[in-house]
Write a protein that binds this DNA or RNA. Structure first.
Length: 591
RNA sequence: GGCCACGUGGCGGAGUGGUGACGCAGCGGACUGCAAAUCCGCGAACCCCGGUUCAAUUCCGGGCGUGGCCUCCA
């Protein structure tokens, strides 16, 4: 068939050809993408997010490259397992689906997946599904048998081309439907209804669709007979996608998909806290997600708890963690690895704070180029500033990596280069100190971060400020200025013993101080990164901080420094905290 | 058994026919009252055996190992 001219540099790996191929679309400037979404019989686990996250980036990148992208993710909401679940719980299949669709959507939102254009559901596409099956029956590649309809694999000479297997080698699903089929490898397009099952009217009697047909029908409906990219997990290659391609190509007599893009699977790595090699962190808790058995993650093995994981780690960490690896690789999943990804992210967050300190402006509000062409033009006119030149090189390398089958891991490496370049520039020009007035340098700082923003946008990271930065607990936020003032006072009077006691006392509570040109900054090492989720450590933290303050006041009083002692109590009173000195020690209450 | 991936430093993870990203961890230095952060620097790897080549971690063949699919699975 006639395709639009290929993109000059973008290449995509195609499962069908087992090669990277130049990217040529059906229609010039347009891309249709279909990603197999979940069967919503249960909550999602982290493995379900790999496809959505990488395709979210793929769409962002293709859009950046100038394509108009239409991305479809289906929801399969009719299936044996949904029916089983509904019966177990005494609710309707629709209710089971509703619950798990809500879970799925909230997971997507948390991971920043917001590029999906259509969310078709199988139960909303019954006429299209039935019409599709009729087409296959008319063409003689499907047959009715006792109210079921089966695809006749023997009629499709191409059957097996995607997963590279022969009909003879296939066992088929066996089971009770075996004798209704001509060949064991024939698969159901339509299943006759058993009593009490949800069903739809059809030319073959009441029933419901088989597993694979909904994707053929929905992709046809929303993307056409031939579309550009079909995605899904590697485990879907056979039988799901093999059957899809058979159905669609027999119905249309045309290629279904130009590029089959399959993401690698997640493995549950043993909880081995091998971050940092030999030194094991003592007391590291075991992985919180299910049993730490090795092997592919799947719901049938009890994988789950994604919502909990997101609440604990934050969506951006998980997204960044997934993007560090090329999408076709197997990823070993464990929480320490996500935390390592988080450490990398923190360096970027700190740079964004530097920007605010130096300029008073907000990184997240920066406007960056949204198209490759526009940005290419800007770079061509770039100045001779070496930092900007280095940044331009990073951008080129980043784009080359993305051009090479969406190599997000390589792209992220360039982001870290850009991080160092920018920090160095800020250091060299003292932009948090005297350099603040150097408008040319400040403009360069902004330009560097604008490039960082441009690239981060492609990966869908650094879109919004992480909620937890600076702490979410009100009382903590009120107490810290007092603590910092006390320490500043001690430092001013060269009373470093007290100053160090304050900082050393904060460390075990999980609060870190940084002395900056403009004052002391504080942050918590909380692992909670998402808005809406309260920090589980907050109250313990506040309690420990109060004990520290009480101790400082006791020390001051013991040293006859009653001024400091009174300052502590008075400032606490302003915050709403009352101290009571009792025989057994000082107690505090928050009114 | 068949089909498909993969095997890179202490760990994670890019890439390449010839000077081996990047991150984490470690070490040294600058900065700091001390730190933190930041910057600079250092050490450290291409599973094994053949072949092609002036030259292979990179290409080809074989072996070993790991993972996935062949039943539901993102």
């Amino acid at each position: 068939m006639n395709l639009a001219p290929a993109h000059p540099s973008l290449r995509i790996y195609n499962t069908l050809s087992k090669r990277k191929e130049p990217f040529a679309t059906v229609q010039a400037g347009k891309v249709g993408i279909y990603l197999c979404g979940p069967t919503v019989y249960d909550k999602a686990h982290i493995g379900h997010m790999v496809g959505p996250v990488i395709f979210d980036c793929i769409k962002r990148y293709l859009t950046y490259c100038g394509y108009k992208v239409n991305w479809v993710v289906n929801i399969t909401d009719v299936d044996d397992k949904l029916i089983k679940k509904a019966n177990e719980r005494g609710i309707s299949m629709l209710d089971v689906a509703k619950e798990n669709v809500a879970d799925y959507n909230s997971n997507l939102t948390a991971l920043g997946v917001d590029q999906i254009d259509h969310f078709p559901r199988a139960t909303d596409c019954m006429p299209e599904i039935i019409g599709f099956i009729e087409c296959l029956v008319e063409r003689g590649v499907a047959y009715e048998s006792e109210g079921d309809v089966y695809f006749d694999v023997g009629k499709d000479s191409d059957y097996g081309k995607l997963s590279n297997r022969s009909i003879e080698s296939l066992q088929g699903e066996g089971g009770s439907t075996g004798e209704r089929k001509k060949h064991p490898a024939d698969f159901a397009l339509w299943k006759s209804a058993k009593p009490g099952e949800p069903s739809w009217e059809s030319p073959w009697g009441n029933g419901r669709p088989g597993w694979h047909i909904e994707c053929s029908a929905m992709s046809k409906k929303l993307l056409g007979d031939t579309f550009d990219i079909h995605g899904g997990g590697l485990d879907l290659v056979f039988p799901h996608h093999e059957n899809e391609i058979a159905q669609s190509e027999c119905c249309h007599n045309a290629p279904m998909v130009l590029y089959w893009a399959h993401n690698g699977l997640l493995r549950a790595g043993a909880a081995a806290a091998k971050i940092g090699g030999r030194t094991e962190k003592p007391g590291e808790p075991a992985a919180a997600t299910g049993d730490a058995v090795s092997g592919k993650m799947s719901r049938s093995k009890g994988a789950g708890g994604l919502a909990t994981l997101i609440e604990k780690q934050g969506g951006e960490r998980i997204r960044f963690f997934l993007l560090r690896t090329h999408y076709r690789s197997t990823v070993l999943f464990n929480e320490p690895a996500i935390e390592e990804a988080g450490i990398g992210l923190e360096s970027f967050y700190r740079l964004f704070k530097r920007y605010t300190r130096a300029t008073g402006k907000d990184f997240y509000a920066l406007k960056s180029p949204t198209s490759r062409e526009a940005s290419d033009g800007l770079v061509a006119s770039a100045t001779s500033d070496p930092a900007l030149q280095s940044a331009a090189r990073c951008r080129e390398n980043f784009i080359s990596a993305m051009d090479d089958d969406f190599n997000t891991g390589g792209a992220i490496g360039e982001l870290f280069e850009l991080l160092t370049i920018t920090n160095k520039f800020v250091d060299d020009h003292n932009l948090e100190g005297d350099g603040k007035t150097n408008t040319a340098a400040v403009a360069t700082f902004t330009a560097l971060l604008t490039t960082l923003k441009e690239l981060a946008n492609i990966l869908g990271i650094f879109l919004h400020a992480p909620a937890s930065a600076g702490g979410t607990d009100d009382l903590l936020t009120k107490l810290m200025p007092l603590v910092i003032d006390l320490r500043a006072n001690a430092r001013k009077t060269k009373n470093f013993a007290v100053a160090d006691k304050i900082r050393d006392g904060l460390a075990p509570i999980g609060i870190v101080l940084e002395d900056r040109a403009g004052g002391t900054e504080w942050s918590t090492n909380s692992t909670s990164g998402e808005s809406g989720s309260s920090d589980p450590d907050a109250s313990a933290r506040t309690g420990a901080l109060m004990q520290l303050l009480i101790q400082l006041r006791a020390d001051a009083r013991a040293a006859k420094d009653f001024a400091t002692g009174d300052t502590i109590r008075n400032r606490l009173t302003e915050i709403g905290i009352t101290l009571e000195d009792r025989a057994g020690g000082t107690e505090w209450t928050n009114t």
